[in-house]
């Protein structure tokens, strides 16, 4: 081996060490700063947890409202995007043909590449538009954020459904017709159940993205001190936005510690969803490799 190839190998080793170093630094730093504040006090402050959970007693110095807000927008985003995404994926994989298929898949790709701030701007523009036309009193809030986040993750759900369905083995596609099922029945009873784990894995991953996105919610109704939302049109708090505002304008060391705690909670949440998606995906792959 020449010196050049030796140098190349050494550079590759150096590059390969970087991701591990970054992740260790990130996780180590968060753990060191935030580990001490990880307790019920971080979530609920001085309010008794059960009161906060079941009687909606306001929480002033904890991150529970932010967690709850994030949970709400993720659920809303899921409700909007999961059915739409799965159906669109089925259409793309099983029915769409020719030019329409090209247009549709281009739109989905475009949506997937769209910066999330644009989705937020879209929501913001929607509210401006509604104010000028039909509903002069409408404002940003939970429902709008959920809607925009739903649109943001919609393409991931479409692609997850599409790839899971179209990567099924050819034999399985022939099984339905060979049993006398029509196309719709074959999709419902054979293809969808077989692709199920792959689809669910994609859905879980998409929900993780909805939970972590900050740019959309900061334009569509997340605020720093809203407490618990009372309706779908209320302003709300959210974990990623809470982390962002803490970094920008924290006042006291306690604020900062809560910020580290919140960052850890969000990180655990998204990596947890990621691992779940990963395991589901592996289970699906193993199943088809065994045949």
């Amino acid at each position: 081996m020449t010196r050049f190839h030796r140098l190349f190998s050494a550079l590759c080793w150096a590059c390969a060490l970087l991701p591990g170093a970054v992740m260790l630094l990130l996780i180590g730093f968060l753990l060191r700063q935030g580990w001490g504040s990880l307790d019920l006090h971080l979530l609920f402050g001085d309010t008794p947890p059960l009161d906060a959970l079941f009687r909606f007693v306001p929480v002033w110095d904890g991150i529970w409202p932010a967690c709850f807000g994030t949970l709400c927008v993720v659920v809303l985003a899921g409700v909007i995007s999961i059915p739409l995404g799965i159906l669109c994926g089925i259409h793309l994989s099983e029915f769409a043909q020719g030019r329409f298929r090209d247009i549709l898949s281009f739109c989905v790709d475009l949506l997937a590449g769209m910066p999330s701030i644009l989705m937020g701007l879209f929501g913001f523009a929607l509210i401006l538009f509604l104010r000028h036309t039909l509903l002069p009193d409408v404002g940003t809030g939970l429902l709008l954020s959920g809607f925009c986040l739903g649109l943001l993750v919609l393409p991931y759900m479409v692609n997850a459904t599409y790839t899971s369905l179209s990567s099924l083995p050819q034999d399985l596609r022939l099984l339905g017709p060979s049993l006398g099922l029509n196309h719709m029945q074959s999709i419902r009873h054979i293809l969808l159940p077989s692709a199920g784990k792959g689809i669910v894995s994609g859905l879980v991953l998409s929900l993780g993205r909805a939970a972590e996105d900050t740019a959309v919610i900061m334009l569509t109704g997340a605020v720093a001190n809203a407490g618990m939302p009372r309706s779908l049109f209320d302003k709300y708090e959210a974990l990623p936005f809470y982390i962002y505002t803490t970094a920008a304008e924290y006042q006291t060391p306690e604020d900062l510690n809560r910020g580290f705690g919140a960052a850890l909670v969000l990180l655990v949440m998204t990596t947890g969803l990621f691992l779940a998606a990963h395991l589901l995906h592996q289970a699906m792959e193993r199943r088809w490799r065994r045949g």
Binding site: L26, F29, L30, E212, A247, A263, T271, F274, H278
Partner: peptide, 20 residues
């Protein structure tokens, strides 16, 4: 590790970068 990196929220990267 690279795949795990995709699951870290952007705001967490930003947060840690602000303080490190």
């Amino acid at each position: 590790t690279i795949k795990l990196m995709t699951s870290v929220p952007t705001v967490v990267y930003g947060f840690v970068a602000v303080f490190v």
